[in-house]
């Protein structure tokens, strides 16, 4: 993928100017590095740097209060992390959050984007209503929802009453807390996926629909046999973006619930935060960071592999036809 994407720009400008032999002239080589240097310096210092520092610290019993590494402990931090019930519990909470939010946030925005694209007027209104929450800071979202989740007097609590249901204790019980945080997340981030789908739908050619409607295809048929199949790549993209975003959940659970009640919703990042910045066990928290880091990278790498294999299979299918 890297090479194919690169082939085009490499032959880009100055093919004429370039000396035969394909090598870049000296001036161009220097200019290239000069242009890329600011990015590369910041990239290496602040993106690669933390990874390396994390690996190093995870091998020492560093504390977060004092500077300095502490003493070498080898892989014992990793052994501790991997055998810690609290770490795996927090990992499970992040996974559970992902399992609860991903289906909702992949499918509902798709449904609404498809419906909204059929609307003749007022599309701006739907975009406004669904996307506006995305620009609201997490803490403001949490303050508003905490107010609406108040027992007895809160709006959501009362809506449950109107529907003849008993509202759970939103911030005091584990199941209520999950419901609260999932509903909040749905409201807050729905618009992002909605926009991705909307943009993809607008890229679908008009003519396909015209042909279909001449053939007498009704709206439902058009959606089922044109829109949804053509949106499959976008769905796959939204899916992976959503899984990664959900696995990295922190803000909502930390602000709204502080990981509670009794740590029963604490996600991994908050576990790292607690061990690293509240208990000051820097080395241990760095080991937890690296385990978590590897899991996240494995998820994205897995997705890329699957996608490339599918693309290759599709290409083979086309040539054999």
């Amino acid at each position: 993928m890297t090479t194919s994407a690169l082939a085009a720009p490499a032959t880009g400008a100055g093919t004429e100017l370039r000396a035969a032999g394909g090598r870049a002239p000296k001036g161009e080589n220097r200019a290239g590095w000069l242009f890329a240097t600011p990015f590369l310096v910041l990239y290496v210092l602040f993106l690669i740097g933390p990874v390396l520092i994390g690996i190093v610290i995870s091998l020492f019993n560093t504390t977060t209060v004092t500077s300095g590494l502490g003493s070498w402990v080898g892989f014992s931090n990793y052994a501790d992390v991997l055998s810690s019930g609290d770490f795996w519990a927090s990992m499970w909470h992040s996974v559970l959050f992902t399992l609860l939010t991903t289906p909702l946030l992949v499918l509902l925005p798709l449904l609404f984007a498809v419906l909204a694209s059929r609307m003749i007027r007022h599309q701006w209104f739907f975009r406004l209503a669904f996307f506006a929450p995305y620009v609201v800071p997490s803490s403001a979202v949490c303050l508003i929802f905490a107010f609406m989740y108040t027992p007895q007097t809160g709006l959501v609590t009362n809506v449950f009453g109107w529907l003849g249901l008993t509202a759970p204790n939103f911030l005091g019980s584990t199941s209520g807390a999950w419901f609260a945080v999932v509903l909040l997340t749905l409201w807050w981030t729905f618009g992002f996926n909605f926009i991705l789908y909307t943009a993809a739908i607008q890229d679908i050619s008009e003519e396909v629909y015209e042909a279909a409607s001449i053939d007498g295809a009704g709206p439902w048929q058009q959606i089922r046999s044109i829109t949804v199949p053509l949106l499959r790549p976008t769905m796959s993209l939204v899916l992976i973006l959503q899984v990664l975003a959900s696995l990295k959940v922190f803000d909502q659970i930390y602000i709204l619930l502080a990981g509670g009640p009794n740590y029963s919703t604490r996600p991994v990042i908050e576990y790292i935060y607690d061990t690293g910045f509240t208990s000051y066990r820097g080395g241990y928290a760095a080991a937890a960071t690296m385990v978590y880091f590897v899991i996240l990278v494995a998820v994205s790498a897995g997705w890329i592999l699957v996608r490339n294999r599918r693309a290759a299979a599709a290409a083979r299918g086309e040539t054999s036809r």
């Binding site: 740097g49 933390p50 520092i53 990042i269």
Partner: peptide
Amino acid sequence: ILAGLMLPTEALVLPQFME
């Protein structure tokens, strides 16, 4: 840079803080 797309930077706050 392409590999950087996969870097979950939010997960690295602790080493970043140390740095």
